[in-house]
């Protein structure tokens, strides 16, 4: 599999932080989440006073049961959901008080990958990928569907990187689930993101495909893009995470490396009845 992207990948600009270990402390903090609380209009408290920092180049995995607030947390970061309280700092600006124009500028630097892929099914793969660039291009030309040549070239390159350039002119719903998720990643790549938010990117996929998708994310991470990813399966967490944040009922119950999650911690996060399931043995 890895031979596939050797030819197309740019050499890594920054070293994988796992290999440098202690030096991680010196890395800059790119995202600071401070006492974020989210209460929905119906009274549900999805997040309670959650705080943590994300450092440049991390592969941070958020774990927790369904409904523990993982999705809400990720969506608070690019403000698809407005947090009720707390602050989120991105490059020393507070996202929570950004104006609509500022917010759009911030969002275009944060790619997002979704559990349900969220592609426009009836549009072509190409259009879906190009739409990742909407925050950059001339808004009026984009409305009538005119795209600069270099953007189209870039879209094809992105598709090549995820290995499905030949599907560029197919309709999105003609692709399999794994392929659709790769289109989702290509769309995020178009944004030249500094950070990728991945909300359960493999929950709708076969275990075997899960690894292939996460390997793409890992590869991007090695190229220097910070990744915040929510995951279900603990074995995937062990395999990919450089650091883990665990949520339970909206409260942060754990923060540390994947290796620190022992049996007791596991029960604490997932509850007494939980049994560890392995996604796949690759």
């Amino acid at each position: 599999m890895s031979s596939l992207f050797h030819s197309t990948l740019i050499p890594c600009p920054s070293p994988n932080w796992r290999e440098v270990g202690v030096r991680a402390e010196w890395r800059t903090i790119m995202l600071r989440i401070q006492n974020v609380t989210k209460t929905y209009p119906n009274g549900t408290q999805a997040l309670k006073n959650v705080s943590f920092d994300v450092k440049d180049g991390e592969f941070l995995v958020v774990i927790g049961l369904s409904g523990s607030g993982k999705s809400t947390l990720l969506r608070c970061i690019n403000r698809l959901i407005d947090p009720t309280e707390g602050k989120i700092f991105w490059d020393n600006t507070d996202i929570t008080i950004a104006s609509p124009a500022e917010l759009r500028n911030i969002r275009r630097k944060i790619g997002m990958v979704f559990q349900q892929f969220n592609l426009v099914k009836r549009s072509s793969v190409m259009t879906n990928v190009l739409s990742g660039r909407l925050g950059y291009v001339n808004p009026w030309l984009s409305l009538v569907g005119i795209w600069p040549e270099e953007e189209k070239k870039k879209a094809l390159q992105s598709l090549e990187r995820v290995g499905i350039a030949d599907k560029a002119y197919n309709r999105a719903d003609a692709l399999s689930g794994g392929q659709q998720q790769r289109v989702g990643i290509a769309r995020a790549l178009m944004q030249d993101p500094k950070l990728i938010l991945a909300d359960e990117p493999v929950a709708s996929l076969d275990p075997v495909l899960s690894h292939s998708i996460l390997q793409y994310l890992e590869q991007l991470n090695k190229e220097g893009i910070t990744v915040i990813c929510s995951l279900h399966f603990l074995d995937l967490v062990h395999r990919y995470a450089t650091r883990v944040v665990a949520l339970k009922d909206g409260v942060k119950v754990f923060e540390g490396s994947a290796q620190e999650i022992d049996r007791a911690k596991f029960k604490e996060i997932y509850g007494e009845e939980a049994q560890e399931v392995r996604a796949a043995s690759l």
Binding site: R107, K109, M112, N118, K121, S131, L134, P139, A188
Partner: peptide, 28 residues
């Protein structure tokens, strides 16, 4: 499907772009 709209908002596109790229292809 609200998913694609969310995805487009996340890329930093404005309202009109969201409608043209997220809503229109779904309803046409």
């Amino acid at each position: 499907d609200s998913g694609p709209i969310e995805a487009l908002q996340a890329t930093g596109s404005n309202q009109l772009q969201t409608v043209v790229y997220g809503v229109v292809p779904q309803i046409v």
